[in-house]
């Protein structure tokens, strides 16, 4: 988000509908400014981060276990990606964990998880065919 925050057109009070500063006793209409701000925060971060998969227990081992993924993706995309890589059929159980501790909500973003739980620059995702850290 840092790169868009500095966009010059988003500087407060530059909206074309705002009155000049000397009439500041009247409350300016902020709606345009607010909508622009919300649009900015809605923009998907193109940043990519590295996910490192680690099998647990009987789970099959991946030859290649580091993948770059767009940070704006939901964790659901990581789950689907891993199932595809392992050739898992629908209904076959697969459990994913962060840092060998918890399963994140599938609608949380990879970016949010990375910001809070990255280890040495990776997001470590453990996978197991049975519940491992229930």
């Amino acid at each position: 988000m840092a790169q868009v925050a500095g966009s010059p057109e988003l500087t407060p009070r530059q909206g074309s509908r705002n009155l000049p500063g000397w009439t500041s006793t009247e409350r300016p209409d902020h709606s345009e400014e607010v909508l622009k701000a919300l649009e900015t925060y809605k923009k998907k971060d193109p940043l990519k981060i590295v996910v490192r998969f680690k099998g647990v227990g009987n789970a099959p081992i991946m030859k290649q276990n580091m993948y770059k993924i767009t940070a704006a993706n939901r964790f659901q995309a990581v789950i689907q990606f891993l199932r595809k890589e392992l050739g898992w059929q629908n209904g076959e159980p697969l459990f994913l964990y962060i840092n060998s501790t918890f399963s994140p909500a599938p609608d949380d973003t990879v970016l949010n998880l990375y910001k809070s739980f990255a280890t040495e620059g990776f997001l470590i995702v453990n996978y197991s065919t049975t519940p491992a850290w229930g």
């Binding site: 919300l38 925060y41 809605k42 949380d108 973003t109 949010n112 998880l113 910001k115 809070s116």
Partner: peptide, 17 residues
């Protein structure tokens, strides 16, 4: 850290340290 999430109208959920 405090477990905190910020929700924007129609918008993203932002989790920060």
């Amino acid at each position: 850290s405090v477990p905190v999430r910020m929700y924007l109208p129609d918008g993203p959920v932002i989790q920060e340290v």
